[in-house]
Amino acid sequence: MTYIVTDNCIGCKYTDCVEVCPVDCFYEGENFLAIHPDECIDCGVCEPECPADAIRPDTEPDMESWVELNRKYAEIWPVIITKKDQLPEAEENDGKTGKLETMFSEAPGEGG
């Protein structure tokens, strides 16, 4: 099992999770975080830290595409280990549906 970031992170990008990760497996995009599934040690400490409930175990139904999306971007985006402010529109984007198709940016974040 591994943990992955799902669509509710898009447009919110809360970073409470990165500070508690013992192996620094979070990677930062412009408006989304990704967990490298091969680096995650399945400790689960990040999951309850996410205010948007965007971190889920890969054992939940229909997570295969999210595992691959997390893997793809974790391999090209910079690592993030320091908590930053969420995106300004985070509260209004929290819980929206269809964000992958309408809001997701492939651009990297700054990392750090």
Results as ranks from 00 to 15, higher is better:
T2K: 13
T2L: 10
Y3A: 02
V5Y: 02
V5G: 00
V5N: 00
D7I: 02
C9R: 04
G11W: 06
C12A: 14
K13W: 01
Y14N: 07
Y14K: 08
T15R: 07
D16F: 01
D16C: 07
C17L: 02
V20F: 13
V20H: 05
V20G: 09
V23I: 08
D24F: 06
F26C: 01
F26W: 02
Y27E: 04
E28M: 03
E28T: 00
G29H: 03
E30W: 08
F32D: 01
I35S: 11
H36D: 15
P37V: 09
E39Y: 02
E39N: 11
E39Q: 10
C40I: 08
G44H: 10
G44D: 15
G44Q: 02
V45E: 13
V45T: 15
E47T: 08
E47M: 15
P48D: 04
P48K: 10
A52F: 05
A52R: 02
I55E: 00
R56F: 00
P57K: 07
D58T: 00
P61H: 11
P61N: 11
S65R: 08
S65H: 08
S65T: 15
W66A: 03
V67Q: 11
V67T: 10
R71P: 10
R71I: 10
K72H: 09
K72V: 15
Y73R: 12
I76G: 02
W77P: 08
I80F: 07
I80K: 03
I81C: 04
K83M: 09
K83Y: 03
D85N: 14
Q86F: 09
L87G: 04
P88G: 09
E91F: 14
E92Y: 07
E92M: 10
E92F: 07
N93V: 00
D94C: 15
D94W: 01
G95A: 12
G95Y: 11
K96N: 10
T97V: 12
M103T: 08
F104H: 03
E106G: 01
E106T: 15
A107W: 06
P108H: 00
G111C: 03
